[in-house]
């Protein structure tokens, strides 16, 4: 079991990260695009653009990437992005799946970090390759086949993290809608634990249910939701990482809200 669950620590706050950087006791991963990273980034951070990871996220390849970023089984890792934590979540989840136990999300976005005037530069850190082991955690992954059978169970809750209109238009039957915007609060990528618990509790998302999250295509928004659930003390979460895009491509059944022209209420 990874330490994310053990310690309950999901995010790393700004001050802690600054002192860990000073102590050189952390590996910081910036998952933004390479051009943005090159311009400036949190001091000492390495770059792993999400697109690069997604081009091949097989465990073998991820292991190589992790090694090349100088991460071994004991290295504390903090991941950040500038997309309300969704991209960082997807990368953190991938590391967790590989078996890395000490990975957390920066509590805020890079823009906010910068707006606080905190340490950033364009220097490329020197990285020594390390050796990480591979102990996969299939219990945090949901595949389409798994989802199809799990859906029929009463103790499984399926959460759709796309925006409400997309949900109304089409979703996996039985899913409930929890748009990703609901997960954050002001400058933080996640609400406070208490706020999150109250929100989930109102929705009946509690206790020991197994919870599967999904979003539009690659498991970013739902990756954030995966961590939101854990932060609220609901450890039994899985990410349907290929999400609705795969579900549709496989021509599996979908559901929609009929007989209403809700799209015409949008001012977009």
């Amino acid at each position: 079991m990874c330490c994310l669950t053990d310690s309950g620590k999901i995010t790393t706050d700004v001050d802690t990260l600054r002192s860990e950087i000073r102590d050189k006791s952390v590996r910081v991963i910036d998952v933004r695009r390479e051009v943005d990273y090159k311009q400036d980034h949190i001091s000492t951070a390495v770059n792993l653009p999400l697109a690069n990871l997604l081009s091949d996220d097989s465990p073998e390849r991820v292991l190589k990437l992790v090694n090349s970023m100088g991460i071994d089984d004991e290295t504390p890792v903090v991941v950040y992005d500038d997309t309300f934590g969704a991209l960082a979540s997807r990368v953190a989840w991938t590391l967790e799946y590989l078996g890395h136990s000490d990975v957390t999300l920066l509590e805020t976005t890079y823009s906010h970090w910068k707006s606080l005037g905190l340490e950033n530069d364009s220097a490329l850190p020197e990285v020594q390759t390390r050796e990480h082991s591979m102990k996969l955690h299939p219990e945090i992954l949901a595949t389409s086949d798994y989802l199809e059978s799990a859906k029929t169970r009463d103790d499984v809750i399926l959460i759709d993290n796309r925006e409400r209109l997309n949900f109304l238009e089409q979703h996996i039957p039985g899913a409930i809608s929890l748009p990703y915007r609901t997960l954050a609060s002001n400058d933080k990528i996640l609400r406070s634990k208490e706020d999150m618990k109250r929100l989930l509790d109102n929705r009946g998302i509690t206790g020991d249910s197994e919870i599967i999250t999904y979003c539009g295509s690659v498991g970013t928004l739902s990756g954030l939701a995966y961590y939101a659930l854990k932060s609220a003390g609901l450890p039994n979460a899985k990410l349907y990482v290929r999400s609705f895009k795969e579900w549709k491509n496989l021509e599996k059944p979908t559901e929609k809200q009929e007989d209403a022209n809700y799209w015409d209420l949008s001012a977009e």
């Binding site: 925006e163 409400r164 209109l165 109304l168 748009p179 609901t182 809700y262 209420l265 949008s266 977009e268």
Partner: peptide
């Protein structure tokens, strides 16, 4: 954005409505 459809609606009676 959090609880509705990412748009709000101004009514004819000086209310703002959040739908869905």
């Amino acid at each position: 954005e959090q609880y509705s459809i990412g748009s709000a609606h101004f009514s004819t009676r000086e209310n703002i409505q959040l739908h869905w």
